[in-house]
Design a binder for these strands. Structure first.
Length: 1058
RNA sequence: GAGCGAUUAGUUCAGUUUGGUUAGAACGCCAGCUCGACAAGCUGGAGGUCAUUGGUUCGAGUCCAAUAUCGCUCACCA
């Protein structure tokens, strides 16, 4: 490199880093050496993650390294981000998800793929509208109806803009290398076009239908939600027994039918009382099943089954005769009277009434219970809907009209009690269906609903996985995916909301079809079909919002509902690339390469993307799906807002740096375990660590038990609370990762400090020393392993491999060992080459996981050595993001050299051990001898000098004929005995004690081996294994003998001393 | 009720696919170190019989079965 080159690279660097002092530097930079010194002075001993992140983020953004365009000369690698909801900020789960994606994407980019990572956010219909409505109510006391559709939607857009900006800045702060120019939002024009095209295509294929269905109704949000958005909560409830009088009871017939219910208020909607058609037979069946369980089940099951059987038999004798009678009456068409309304309803025979449950008879309320709904359909019963959309009772409830559900319940119960209908009340734990979105109870509600027929669509998504077209990793998650799809439940796609894609359906009054034909003559973007009541038309338009008067002579009315959020998310991999247009992007990047997501949306999202992908494009949306772990707290519970155990990734990044956050998360991502994060508070006043407990983690302000001062937490919201300084959340995992980044920084610092005046050159293999060839051999293996691990989504393995290599091998051995030659002018230059070459490759291998620190070092390194490389030195890329991924020649891997080096490591450990045991002061130089075979002595000899710098020890003799010094501290390994001459420093009794312990250990070892070798092991085990065991036994015996001799010698010396 | 996962050092986790020396790391702990990258560091040390029981095998942390505990998912409970 010439001076001019160096100067120009310095020039660039300074310009970027210190624009404010740019001019003065130019005028004072009269000598290259001065600048070298200046650059070194500019390397602090602690890595400054804040400065580095700011600088590199800006650099990447300005240079546009992450932008990707169709490039036929390169192979594409594409990933679409699971779009975060615009409901709030990113949490730890996102941080994990995005760290993993970025690691893959960055590696692929370096590997030379045309790499695209599409960023975006999701409008999250229900969740976002709910949050804005909640605020509206809290802050202005208004409901959405007060505001109106347009104004509310505008408010939600404002919210969306605000949160999208925050989400994007968080992603950038994490270093995510998304193509920001291709940002998509699930509600933007491009996505809207795709949604309409998808809907239109489904409509055209007859896969869209509308029907009255019992839906999960969220009375708070006033919308239907899907089964997947409902969770069940156990609470204390009651079981009420009601007597329904029989109409005209005959002689010997019961006068009442008793039913039990947990929801008495729904009785106004009762349309029948059911009894099993064959109660005796049903009892027999249940009995037989229990008996079988007793026969074959485990001990615990058996006891349970026995108890159940006893209860069943007792019950049978008690109620069977009456049930049989009731079944007969049902078959004769007899009726009972519904109390309160005094309405006659039929007694019916239906298998839904299980004789072993409740009273054996069950009231049927088809409009308010999913099972009763099925019975209603089966028995062709009327369905009486009692509810308004807001959860109050309607006109069918008579005098209860207008009352909310809870009130109706109390009123009805007291009325039933007064009438003598309520004969018994039992306490009972019941499960309440609750809306995941609004956390309010779900009411089964009969409503018009839009559905997508799933049978064929689901089948394509199942086939994709069973055939291996789409791979789900880890493979165990394929089962849940297939099970869910195999139910082929139709997909309810309508939501009674305002925030979302409005369903492109228009209702048209009954007109001649010719009217429609002429109104839309020549149009292929409008379709129509008779509605389900056959008294009008349903129109579907793909491209435009039809006007009210689009059909002459009648008024079109648009469907008000919007589509389920997942309807648009399902299109994400192809809608973001421009479908339905045949864009070059779609052609080139689709199917995408990998999808990285969490397990709780496998069915909601992944399955639907697969079926929508095939349906729309004929192709799968992605090759592979990787399901990553969940983040749990120290108690093993998932993180959630309600528990207060969530952690803000931004806070972690501020304290430890984005790289530390990423490295920690990647390091924890194993295939089988969830990520458990133990976190604690750090007092901002005194720095002491306060354990985070279930109790204090939701507090807004915490008093430090040590210094007694208060600090605020992430939950602080009032100005008084926020006035206290924020106590950061700290975690061991982040600390370890931060320390690692710092270690890397300092190793780099060491290399840079020692590079001045260095000119890289091509180094030939025979110039290299053992340690050089060793580190290059190890580096080559590590590079290979890291590549394989990342490609197989073994994230933890990649991080672990790099951590161990960088810290234990590169820093603890190579850097340390290099010092001796580095401070020797004659040998300096060769080591510089290797140090630089290995660091250069290590930085690139780490870059996908820790992008900022590696880029920071990479660009600084360019000021010291813009040309570098282990084989043929080349000009380094201006950014590590586009530097080539290290692929090293596998012939570098040399097991012989690795073995040779491991002898050195072993000897070094023995020397250090012996010194430490005898408390030899660190800088006191001692001599030692190595008794070993002459082969090993030859192998050790090239590294003999390094004992001095690494253990302040000098080896005086090596070989088989070495005589140990009389007073020595020794250590024995399989291949050598090492005697450190500590002369009068020695503590003989300590040394003897240690040796005796060692002999004891060896004896135990020997004993178990002897036993093994005298048994049938010798005959049955493979000869190779037996030989190896024999060899190892011999070796152990030898070690023991050496130790015994040492003890004797020490005892003799001790006596002589006396 | 069904399925899935986990159980290894004080703590958090590797190791189990393909069985083979008396099981590794990090943090913490103990002892000693400011030696020309790093105290967010260096060196050394102590600490576990791999949840339990049984089986297969010459040999089991690793394979099989059962049990226990924890977690997750789905379904159902008038």
């Amino acid at each position: 490199m010439c001076v001019g080159e160096l100067f120009s690279s310095l020039f660039c660097y300074i310009k970027i880093t210190f624009p404010q002092i740019f001019e003065s530097v130019v005028f004072t930079s009269f000598s290259v050496m001065t600048n070298q010194e200046q650059l070194i002075n500019d390397l602090p001993t602690q890595y400054d993650h804040i400065a580095a992140q700011e600088r590199q983020m800006k650099f990447w953004e300005e240079k546009g390294f992450f932008h990707s365009d169709v490039n036929p000369n390169k192979r594409p690698y594409a990933v679409v981000i699971p779009p975060p909801n615009v409901t709030g900020m990113l949490h730890m789960g996102h941080a994990l998800n995005d760290s993993l994606q970025d690691a893959l994407v960055r590696m692929k980019r370096m590997q030379g793929f045309e790499t695209l990572w599409v960023p975006g956010v999701d409008h999250a219909g229900i969740a976002t509208q709910a949050i804005v409505e909640k605020r509206l109510l809290e802050q202005e006391g208004k409901t959405r109806w007060d505001l109106g559709r347009e104004a509310l939607v505008q408010r939600i857009w404002d919210w969306k803009d605000q949160y999208q900006a925050r989400i994007l800045s968080q992603l950038k702060a994490m270093g995510c290398s998304c193509d920001w120019r291709r940002l998509r939002f699930t509600l933007d024009d491009v996505c809207a076009k795709a949604v309409r095209a998808f809907f239109f295509k489904l409509f055209a294929d007859g896969l869209i239908y509308r029907g009255k269905r019992l839906v999960n109704w969220d009375v708070k949000l006033q919308t239907a939600v899907s089964d997947d958005e409902v969770f069940h909560e156990t609470t204390a409830g009651h079981f009420w027994y009601l007597n329904y009088p029989v109409v005209n009871p005959q002689e010997g017939e019961p006068k009442f039918v008793t039913v039990a219910t947990t929801r008495p208020e729904t009785m106004l909607g009762d349309v029948a009382v059911a009894v099993h058609p064959d109660p005796a037979g049903e009892f027999d069946r249940i009995e037989a099943a229990l008996r079988e369980k007793i026969e074959t089940g485990s001990e615990r099951d058996r006891d349970e089954a026995k108890a159940e059987l006893d209860a069943l038999m007792e019950r049978r004798s008690k109620i069977l005769p009456e049930l049989i009678k009731l079944a007969e009456m049902a078959k004769m068409g007899r009726k009972v009277i519904l109390p309160i309304q005094q309405r006659e309803i039929p007694l019916i025979a239906d298998v839904w009434a299980k004789p072993d449950k409740g009273t054996g008879c069950v009231k049927i309320t088809p409009a308010h219970d999913p099972n009763d709904y099925e019975v209603g359909l089966r028995q062709k019963l009327p369905m009486i809907n009692l509810l308004n959309r807001d959860g109050t009772y309607n006109e069918n409830a008579g005098k209860y009209q207008g009352m909310p559900i809870k009130k109706v319940r109390t009123e009805i119960l007291s009325e039933l009690e007064n009438e003598g209908v309520l004969i018994k009340t039992e306490d009972r734990t019941i499960e309440i269906a609750t809306s995941d979105r609004s956390k309010t109870p779900i009411e089964p509600y009969l409503n018009d609903q839009w559905f997508v027929k799933m049978d064929k669509l689901a089948q394509t998504a199942m086939d994709a996985v069973t055939s291996g077209e789409v791979e789900i990793k880890p493979s165990r998650y394929a089962k849940g995916y297939l099970d869910w799809l195999s139910e082929k439940r139709d997909w309810p796609i309508g939501r009674q909301l305002w925030w979302g894609h409005q369903i492109p359906i228009w209702y048209c009054p009954d007109v001649e079809e010719s009217v429609l034909q002429s109104a839309f003559a020549g149009r292929s973007d409008v379709l129509w079909r008779r509605n389900e009541a056959n008294d009008g038309w349903l129109l579907c338009s793909q491209t435009e919002n039809l006007k009210e008067d689009a059909v002459p002579g009648c008024t079109l009315k648009r469907e008000e509902d919007v589509l389920d959020t997942w309807f648009s998310s399902a299109l994400w991999p192809h809608s973001t690339l421009g479908w339905p247009d045949k864009t070059p992007e779609l052609e080139y990047y689709y199917p995408t390469s990998a999808l990285i997501t969490s397990r709780d949306i496998i069915s909601l999202w992944v399955a639907r993307m697969v079926l929508a992908g095939y349906f729309n494009t004929g192709k799968k949306p992605f090759q592979q799906v990787f399901i990553h772990p969940k983040i749990l707290d120290k108690y093993g519970e998932g993180m959630s807002k309600s528990k207060g155990n969530g952690v803000d990734p931004v806070a972690v990044m501020e304290k430890f740096g984005a790289d530390a956050l990423r490295f920690a998360l990647v390091y924890l991502t194993t295939e089988s375990q969830d990520v458990r994060l133990t976190l604690d508070f750090e007092c901002p006043h005194c720095g002491s660590v306060i354990e985070q407990t279930k109790k204090n983690r939701t507090q807004h302000v915490i008093a430090c038990p040590k210094c007694k001062k208060s600090f605020s937490t992430q939950w602080a919201d009032t100005p008084e609370e926020k006035a206290f300084p924020l106590g950061p959340v700290v975690g061991e995992r982040f600390e370890v990762a931060r320390n690692f980044c710092n270690k890397l920084w300092n190793a780099s610092r060491f290399v840079m400090i020692n590079l001045d005046g260095f000119t890289p050159r091509s180094v030939s293999a025979d110039e290299l020393c053992v340690e050089d060839r060793w580190i290059i051999s190890r580096l080559t293996s590590v590079a290979k392993r890291v590549t394989e691990s990342l490609e197989q989504y073994k994230f933890s393995d990649a991080a672990r491999t790099l951590y161990d290599f960088a810290w234990d091998e590169f820093c603890s051995f190579y850097v340390e060992i290099s010092k001796a030659r580095l401070y020797d002018d004659k040998r300096r230059e060769l080591v510089q080459n290797v140090l630089l070459g290995v660091l250069d490759a290590l930085l690139r291998l780490l870059h996908p996981i820790t992008p900022f620190v590696t880029e920071e070092v990479w660009r600084r390194l360019a000021d010291f050595a813009p040309v570098r490389g282990l084989n043929e030195p080349i000009q380094a890329a201006e950014s590590i993001t586009i530097a080539p991924w290290p692929v090293l020649d596998e012939s570098n891997i040399d097991p012989e050299i690795e073995k040779q080096f491991s002898y050195f490591q072993e000897a070094l450990r023995c020397v250090r051990d012996a010194r430490a045991r005898q408390n030899v002061p660190p800088r006191t130089e001692v001599e030692f001898v190595v008794k070993c075979s002459s082969e090993i002595a030859d192998l050790l000899r090239p590294m003999g000098e390094y004992f001095k710098s690494m253990a302040a020890s000098v080896v005086t003799q090596m070989g088989p004929d070495v005589e140990p010094p009389a007073l020595s501290s020794n250590a024995t390994t399989t291949a050598m005995e090492i005697y450190v001459d500590v002369a009068d420093l020695i503590d003989i009794s300590a040394e003897i004690q240690k040796k005796e312990k060692e002999v004891e250990r060896l004896n135990g070892f020997i004993k178990s081996k002897e036993a093994k070798l005298s048994g049938s092991f010798v005959e049955k085990a493979p000869a190779q294994v037996v030989a190896k065991e024999r060899e190892s036994l011999d070796d152990l015996r030898m070690q023991r003998d050496v130790n015994l001799q040492t003890i004797e010698r020490l005892r003799a010396a001790a006596n002589a001393r006396k």
